[in-house]
Design a protein around this nucleic acid. Structure first.
Lengths: 192, 192
DNA sequence: TTCTCCACTAGACACTGTCAAGTATGAATA
DNA sequence: TATTCATACTTGACAGTGTCTAGTGGAGAA
């Protein structure tokens, strides 16, 4: 049971943490700072999250839920669309994505409810690969194709978010066009 | 000018930091801890690195130098080999790689000597792409292909290093075979 | 000898995460 | 109504951190 005020603080802390992660990165998130931003004592957040890793776990769960939703919604549109959905999620939810992909901040295995959401996202990709390859394909090939698609999407997302890709490429008029182009290349090499 | 003893401490600190990054991640690296490991006072490392970011910059420069060497050495072997070289570098130099790809630890632009090494690696990839596409290809296509190859390599490297890829895939008998398979898929879609 | 770097030490400061203990409030129970 | 009790906090303390400032010892040059 949790009162309105409780959920209020929990939400405030979460939102503050996600915002900090989006602008300055997750490492800058501090228990005392989020408490300060919420206007409560430095120990108040502990009541809702246990410790610092608990905040990261809560952000991860929320992020993986959103990611799984986005990916599942794109399955009917094919492999390229899933890849695009992954990258667009990362760009649209910078704060969440940065936390989700940092296993050192909180190891997912310790937070089963977050792990469930992560599995939803993975299974959607995995299923789509087996559908395309056919049920009777070898497991090694399914593994390789899954790893391949995930690598493209994840690599592009992280390079766009925190990497020097855009800076190095120099002139990129339309990022969405670049994402679509890369996603199409990836999916074409899987159907062939 | 730097004495043997000076370089000794600098090396010791760097090695300790890389080792910590490889086992526990860069965030665990502490000025006081590396000083303790080297058997000097908590302020000694400041003389060589200025501040904490300076250690990360030194690790980055060293890492990018090694990466550029590996990639340049693989250019004659083709696109797939470059992709494999990138992933193998990440696995073989876990500590370096983790630091290099974390722009929040030290922004490369503030450390020109590190930036030079990073550019060496990027240019090797970029050149190979233009060689394959031909000099007269459109810049957008060259950009997309470069982003694409980099994404595959970087995505696979990060997923293998810190991501849940292997855990999720379940049974992967031979990691090197998986890397080779993914690299071949990537390079095949660029030559077609 | 004196001067002056160089590599390092020592102490302090503000900041952090977290443990332990106290307090106000509202609901349930006797 | 009076008492109990859990919830949602506050306050205070502690060890650990990065880093600023101020020393210290020793080697080479004048």
């Amino acid at each position: 049971m949790s009162s309105a005020k409780t959920d209020g603080l929990r939400r405030q802390v979460l939102d503050a943490a996600v915002a900090i992660a989006a602008t300055s990165g997750p490492d800058v998130i501090s228990m005392r700072e989020v408490a300060r931003l919420a206007g409560v004592s430095h120990q108040a957040p502990y009541h809702h999250f246990g410790d610092r890793a608990g905040i990261f776990a809560a952000i991860s769960e929320e992020g993986f839920r959103l990611l799984a939703n986005a990916i599942e919604a794109s399955t009917t549109l094919g492999m390229a669309a899933m890849c695009e959905a992954y990258v667009h999620f990362a760009l649209a939810h910078k704060g969440h994505f940065r936390v989700m992909m940092r296993n050192d901040l909180c190891s997912l295995e310790d937070y089963p409810s977050a792990l469930i959401q992560a599995d939803r996202a993975f299974n959607a990709l995995r299923n789509e690969v087996t559908v395309i390859l056919g049920e009777d394909s070898h497991e090694d090939e399914a593994n390789a194709h899954t790893a391949y698609m995930w690598s493209v999407a994840h690599g592009l997302a992280t390079l766009l978010l925190d990497g020097p890709l855009l800076k190095k490429l120099g002139s990129v008029a339309d990022i969405n066009a670049l994402i679509r182009n890369v996603a199409r290349k990836a999916s074409s090499s899987i159907t062939v």
